[in-house]
Design a protein around this nucleic acid. Structure first.
Lengths: 194, 194
DNA sequence: CGTCTATTTGAATGTACTCAAAAGCGGTGG
DNA sequence: CCACCGCTTTTGAGTACATTCAAATAGACG
């Protein structure tokens, strides 16, 4: 079942009856995204909340100099989306791209509204998901202010060990807010002692 | 009426009947916080969501070097809280202090849960509030990566003009992630041309 | 197997920090 | 109401962390 993972993800926070589960699942769409293909590009209006069942996505923006800044990675069992665009229904700035061949479930904004009406407890579920997202987003701001590049890298390694294998160094550098060259130098230093 | 502002704040996102309004208001507590006094200190477990009706609060954390990092300002008509502690009911890292004599309304976690049960549409309200918070938090991460200190300062001035008068420069520096000395130098440069 | 992209390495540079000291400002008490 | 004290802001010199640019090497995908 491709829906086992997402139902499990949800059941951590709210309880659903069989009927509610069925209804929810009926709103989902299965999609496959090939490596290096995009599920959302900047300038588009985001229509879907995205849940990854297999593989890994990255969400990033491009600044005026053309540099990419990774806002989030989404391995299996994670949600991802352009919150701004999804919420305002204005063109967004996020690009969401597959790092490897990836399977996702999508829930359209309109279906999500339907879901809120039919099963109000989903309002709670997404509130909780977003609360967690906000907490880690705020922690990231604090970390960027108070930790050195090296410390941020170590923290990243500890927190997302599964990503170290999958994600190119370049993108980890971008996520923690440094250049790939500098990350390479950091690693050179640290690993020599090990 | 001290509750006019908060009801107006809420009515931007959800519609309440008179009865629901009355019930909601009955859960609120009025508090006054004198300048330089704290409404929350690090290590405490946060019990309340806080809404500012008058004055201004700042939320900040202290890192291992003893430096303060301002996570948010809350002028009138804003919500503030230690999201992590409020959500997990673990001791938090945030300090919330009044920059000037400030009036707030507090809503305890347990009353908030009550509210969700009695008036489920509040689940929606707080979801929306938190969504917006998340969007601006993510934008701040991107800005810290892609803008120079000077650009961040100008953006701050544009976005929060009302705070420029109230908030000491030192704290604005902290909010945008630079030292007060450096902000002073920036201002020296820019203003000379004006 | 070849090409394209990611990573490594090095030298020069820059943005922002640290430390120190002086000047300005505001609140509090006499 | 003024004077003083403490905190904020300014200014300067020296420093550091991280960047930029360039080139060489390694690695991965088609």
């Amino acid at each position: 079942m491709p829906f086992e993972l997402i139902l499990q993800n949800i059941s951590k926070h709210i309880n659903l009856t069989k009927e509610e589960q069925t209804f929810f699942v009926s709103l989902l769409h299965v999609k496959q995204v090939k490596r290096k293909h995009f599920i959302l590009k900047e300038g588009e209006i985001s229509k879907d909340s995205i849940f990854v069942t297999q593989g890994c996505l990255r969400g990033y923006t491009i600044d005026r100099d053309g540099s990419e800044h990774v806002l989030s990675f989404a391995p299996a069992n994670w949600w991802i989306g352009d919150m701004y665009s999804l919420f305002t229904q204005q063109p967004g700035t996020m690009n969401i791209e597959a790092l490897v061949d990836t399977d996702v479930l999508t829930l359209s904004r309109t279906d999500q509204e339907k879901l809120y009406k039919e099963v109000p407890t989903f309002e709670r579920f997404f509130r909780i998901i977003i609360e967690k997202s906000l907490v880690s987003s705020q922690q990231r701001i604090i970390d960027n202010f108070s930790l050195t590049a090296e410390e941020r890298y170590h923290k990243f390694c500890k927190r997302y060990p599964e990503l170290i294998e999958t994600v190119p160094q370049k993108q980890i550098a971008s996520f923690i807010g440094i250049t790939p060259e500098f990350l390479s130098k950091l690693r050179g230093r640290t690993h020599s002692g090990k």
